[in-house]
Amino acid sequence: MPENFEPKILAFFCNWCTYTAADLAGVSRMKYEPTTRVVRVMCSGRVDPQFVLDAFAHGADGVLIGGCHPGDCHYVEGNYKLLRRFRMLRRLVASLGIEPERLRMEWISASEGERLQKVVNEMTAQIKLLGPLELPERFREWDTELHEETFDKEREVVASGQ
């Protein structure tokens, strides 16, 4: 693991609850790790599973999705839709060999600045222990491997004269 590893956590925050909680944390000067990069969406229901996969594929060490508490969604039930997708996503991400701690979903209401601070710090600490994910690098390695395997196989085929 490189020294001074600063994880990159891509965060999707819903406008009404978690984004506002992050604003509140700011106004209240609550210090937390500078590891998140926030994409504001109107509702956590807007978070397309592809966004999460794209984030990992482009080098995120973790993905955090923040929405309103169940029952509090500004759009009635967008967060429930996210929850359903999240259950699926967690399995999908695990099957790709990505540790479950790297994908996190949290209900953080507009008044919970402290909770936001805690979640970001906690997640940063967990990911620091895990080390960088480096999926883009791994992709390149896998590509080479795949390429070499295929190439070797072809060579074998040619050598055996079949």
Partner: peptide, 8 residues
């Protein structure tokens, strides 16, 4: 209302 749930 523009939540985007259907888009996702």
């Amino acid at each position: 209302k523009g939540c985007g749930t259907c888009v996702a």
